[in-house]
């Protein structure tokens, strides 16, 4: 089920949160809306879900004009950053909520909820209250709850933002695998470029209420449309007045064509990688080498080297 937005404009007072946004999300994809905080990505997601109304523009979900359909009738799944668990209901009743609202037969609800609880590995917690679950478990419950009604699209607003780093990584992998199984069109908002690069089929970079670039993770990483996208996705450093990736810098102990002479300021080992901090004229670039490369070059603070961006 595809999503299309055309000419979406949203203002909060004088602040323009979204400025004429056209977005197409193809059916069955896992798409990340990536950008800095306050860039408008959450607002766009909430407009797609019907929780916010756009000042101008239209939303189509699964080919149906949805702009004026209220949230409760859009049949979308929505997962919130802070879980929005129904605190007074058991895990089972939380997941069953949408089906109970739709007045499905009891037996059907039970079968569906059991299936989903198994999918999110919470089957033994069915009778617990949300307060008795960890953050990661609560978010899995929220996901099961959103999926229970068989939504045409699944929208996740910074779904892992409130979790600690380890759980976040686990849930991220798990969401990827889940999506490969369930195949529902999914859009998730994140400000974490690593999360977007790792999980999604497609990334939409949003900044200042505008879409900067849309593409696959490797497209965006290798062929960024502008400096903002390049800086936002992956590490960058400056050499000879232009932006380069630190792992795309070659270092030579002798003069090379197009090489820029530099002095090693400092070496820093982080696990398997070595960060070489350099001074080349007015720039202070840094290069990312493997341990082997750094040792072969016999680098030390004060060494004279020549640096060249890889093409």
């Amino acid at each position: 089920m595809s999503i299309e937005t055309r000419g979406i404009v949203k203002r909060f007072g004088n602040f323009v949160a979204l400025d004429n946004v056209d977005l197409t999300v193809e059916s069955g994809r896992l798409t990340a809306l990536l950008g800095p905080s306050g860039g408008g990505k959450s607002t766009l997601l909430r407009i797609i879900g019907g929780l916010e109304t756009a000042d101008e523009g239209s939303v189509r979900i699964a080919g149906v004009e949805s702009t004026s359909i209220p949230a409760q009738k859009r049949n979308v799944g929505f997962v919130f950053q802070h879980y929005a668990a129904f605190k007074h209901l058991s895990v089972y009743r939380n997941v069953a909520f949408g089906l109970e609202i739709r007045k499905r037969p009891k037996a059907e609800i039970k079968a569906r909820v059991d299936e989903l609880l198994e999918l999110v590995h919470l089957e033994q917690f069915a009778d617990r209250l949300p307060a008795q679950l960890s953050g990661g478990q609560r978010q899995r419950m929220a996901l099961a709850r959103a999926l229970a009604v068989e939504p045409s699209v699944l929208l996740l607003d910074e779904p892992f933002g409130a979790l600690d780093a380890k759980v976040r990584r686990e849930l991220r992998d798990w969401l990827r695998r889940l999506h490969d199984d369930v195949h529902v069109t999914t859009v998730f908002v994140t400000h974490d470029q690593e999360e977007a690069l790792e999980v999604s089929d497609e990334i939409v970079v949003i900044n200042h209420g505008k879409i900067e670039q849309v593409g696959t993770p490797s497209d965006l990483y290798d062929k960024p449309a502008n400096d903002f996208v390049m800086e936002f996705l992956g590490p960058v450093t400056t050499l000879g007045g232009r932006l380069v990736r630190p792992h795309d810098l070659e270092i030579f102990p002798h003069h090379v064509d197009n090489g820029i002479e530099a002095e090693v300021l400092r070496l820093q080992r982080i696990g398997f990688e070595v960060r070489v901090e350099l001074r080349a004229g007015a720039d202070e670039p840094w290069a990312q080498l493997t341990r082997g490369q750094a040792e072969a070059l016999e680098l030390a603070a004060g060494s004279r080297v020549w640096v060249r961006p890889l093409d």
Binding site: L51, A71, Q72, F78, F80, A146, V149
Partner: peptide, 22 residues
Amino acid sequence: AGDDMEQAARVLGASARQRFVR
């Protein structure tokens, strides 16, 4: 409590009355 829960209920299809009661 905030209005997160009411928003979640809304997206799950609950009408204003159902959100209030449930």
